[in-house]
Design a protein around this nucleic acid. Structure first.
Length: 659
DNA sequence: GCAGACGTCA
């Protein structure tokens, strides 16, 4: 009987089938005796992601053997329910199997619970698993994953007095793992790959490479890990030389190369690999489409999209989002409609990516039609979706609606607050941003670096120097958050514009990362406002080093000299421009737009649709106060646009003056 | 027991 049941269970390919068979077995009362059958049921439920059903079965069993425990714990881990796995593990009243220990270590590694992982040593010793290769490899993997925790480091750095114990406990997981690895008598491919992968994750390609070279036999995983490490840092040169040297490649390897070249924007190279590879899959196609979308080539993207044999949810969201990001809301909408006909179930990430694509250009309609859909509205409960909706409305200029959505959300997390604070700051609603930040602290919600950036930029808008200083201090001292260049640039701007040039300069000198052009740029601008030639010279000379090709810096400096009547110096800067062959700065986005519009006006625009024209014009409307133009799709671009409208910026005037 | 490739708010 049991054999037949076992066999029947084996044929269950869907959760629905399994549930009905399970029900049948319960009714006929034929399963309570067999551990084997119960175990199979638990494992199947877990495989279908229904761990709650598995747990119900598990809880009904009075005498559980180690295999049953193992199945349940492993089921949780398989479904990324790591904390559930661990709490069940703690309840175990029988000696665990090595498989179970290995599963639990996997969970601890993903949770980055380093201390608990260390605590496992005793148990492993007691159960006699310390020479078990399976367990040893899992231990290494666990510690390797814990190696990147820096919250421990934050606490550590904040300690007034560091004693031996605290120093010892700061030995990172990576070092524990390495020690373990070095002391192993018998290492296999898995041990090697785990350690290498740990270094790759940490970004230490040198050590990763050393180990890789020392590895006696290299399997596919090892090669792929190395290649992905190089593509991650954009070193396509090394990646491709490894690729060439590889004795075997799978589809994943080829895809790594495609993804790498797409990331650095070398689409022709990516396409060449795509054409050459023996066997493509959905991922290869989707990556190529994404590459074309990012480079603005929607034609080619759509061509591949229509050509590809099967599409998944990601493919659809890439293409739909691609239209939205490139200012084609109606094409996005149309594609969304055909997506719905496919009957594919959408997920929260799908919604998120559409919202984010639309919010970049302020397209509300597409999102609203997705969300008003019966499938879409289910995701209103997802905090992340709500957050991106807030962001969307804010970016579209509808701060009231953004604020309404924010107020409606009852589980506001730090992300939610951050989004709203940034939104207020960008709209110049300084008091509201600051109030919200204070409110957040009253409710004991811990801010992160983005929250601080938001409140600092609010201070910047409002010229709140003292508040800015206080928040910056709070961020670094109380919350131990390392400021990024953006934080510094913001602070320099706040201080500089209020005339505290010395203090701003000191702040730059105290930076632990190399100051970027944004930081020195803020300094230069502030020096201009306060006519401080000496400080301007310092900032400008740094800027010339970082971005010698940016004409704006030379122009600003020469304007400062000119204001002081120092004509010799003005001439000197001019000659500098000639010396460095600095071209006119045409890099800023609105100038690109202007020239795009110019193209329509002057040339053939038959390939350009109304959407795009409308989109560009609406941007121009905002940025350049294009006079007398009303947004209307039916207007003929030639009749409404005249290139002479496009020379409104004061920067451009300076440009013309100088060259 | 190890790895990798596509869409995710501030």
């Amino acid at each position: 009987m049991n054999q037949t049941v076992y066999h029947l269970l084996h044929t269950c390919k869907t959760l629905k089938r399994l549930k009905s068979l399970h029900a049948l077995l319960l009714v006929s009362g034929s399963i309570d005796s067999s551990d084997l059958v119960l175990n199979k049921i638990i494992r199947l439920y877990s495989r279908f992601g229904a761990t709650d059903y598995a747990r119900n079965v598990f809880d009904e069993i009075t005498e559980r053997n180690p295999f049953l425990w193992n199945s349940m714990i492993h089921g949780y881990v398989e479904n990324s329910q790591h904390t559930e796995a661990f709490s069940l593990f703690r309840d175990m009243d029988v000696t665990p199997l090595n498989f179970t220990v290995s599963s639990i270590l996997k969970a601890l590694g993903r949770l980055k619970w380093l201390r608990v992982g260390e605590g496992m040593f005793g148990l492993i010793w007691k159960c006699g698993f310390c020479f078990d290769l399976l367990v040893q490899n899992s231990l290494i993997d666990c510690f390797m994953r814990c190696g990147e925790v820096d919250c421990a480091r934050r606490v550590f750095d904040g300690l007034e007095e560091k004693d031996v114990v605290s120093w010892n406990s700061m030995l990172s997981g990576l070092e524990i793992a390495r020690e373990l690895f070095d002391s192993m008598h018998e290492k296999n491919v898995v041990s090697w790959t785990s350690v290498i992968c740990g270094y790759v994750r940490k970004g230490d390609m040198v050590e990763a490479r050393n180990l890789f070279e020392a590895m006696p036999t290299k399997d596919m995983a090892a090669w792929n890990v190395m290649i992905s490490g190089y593509t991650d840092v954009g070193d396509m040169h090394t990646a491709s030389s490894l690729f060439e040297a590889m004795p075997f490649r799978d589809t994943g390897t080829w895809n790594l190369m495609i993804s790498g070249y797409c990331k650095v924007g070398e689409l022709e190279r990516a396409r060449k690999y795509f054409e050459q590879m023996p066997c493509t899959n959905v991922v290869s196609w989707t990556m190529m489409i994404d590459g074309y979308v990012k480079s603005g080539n929607l034609h080619e993207a759509r061509y591949l999209f229509d050509e590809m044999p099967e599409k998944n949810l990601i493919t659809w969201s890439t293409m739909i989002g691609g239209y939205a990001k490139n200012g084609k809301p109606s094409a996005a909408l149309e594609l969304f409609k055909s997506f719905k006909k496919q009957g594919l179930e959408l997920d929260e990430t799908f919604i998120l990516s559409i919202i984010s694509a639309c919010s970049q250009l302020g397209i509300v309609d597409t999102v609203e039609s997705v969300m008003s859909d019966d499938v879409g509205s289910r995701y209103f409960s997802d905090t992340r979706v709500v957050n991106s909706l807030i962001d969307l409305y804010a970016k579209c200029g509808n701060i009231e609606k953004a604020s309404q959505v924010f107020e409606m959300e009852d589980k506001k997390d730090f992300c939610c607050y951050s989004t709203m604070i940034v939104a207020f700051a960008n709209h110049g609603l300084v008091e509201k941003a600051v109030y919200l930040f204070e409110d957040m602290q009253r409710k004991n919600i811990e801010p992160d670096e983005v929250t601080f950036l938001g409140v600092l930029s609010a201070c910047n808008h409002g010229g709140l120097v003292n508040e800015g200083r206080r928040y910056f201090k709070q961020m670094t001292e109380e919350f131990k958050i390392q400021p990024t260049e953006k934080h510094y640039a913001c602070m320099v701007d706040i201080l500089g514009r209020s005339g505290f040039l010395e203090e701003a300069h000191e702040m730059i000198l105290s930076m632990h990362v190399a100051p970027t052009s944004a930081v020195w740029g803020a300094m230069l601008a502030a020096s201009n406002v306060h006519r401080n030639v000496q400080m301007a010279e310092i900032a400008a000379s740094e800027l010339f080093k970082i971005e010698p090709e940016n004409s704006g810096n030379y122009i600003l400096l020469s304007n400062i000299y000119a204001a002081e009547g120092r004509w010799h110096d003005v001439a000197r800067v001019r000659s500098l421009i000639r010396e460095h062959h600095v071209k006119k700065n045409r890099g800023s986005s609105w100038i690109e737009l202007a020239s795009a519009v110019h193209e329509f006006v002057m040339g053939d625009f038959s390939h350009v649709d109304a959407d795009r024209i409308c989109f560009i014009l609406s941007l121009l409307n905002e940025d350049m106060k294009l006079s007398g133009y009303t947004k209307n799709k039916d207007l003929h671009p030639i009749s409404t646009l005249n290139p002479s409208y496009l020379s409104l910026s004061s920067d451009t005037e300076m440009d013309e003056e100088l060259f």
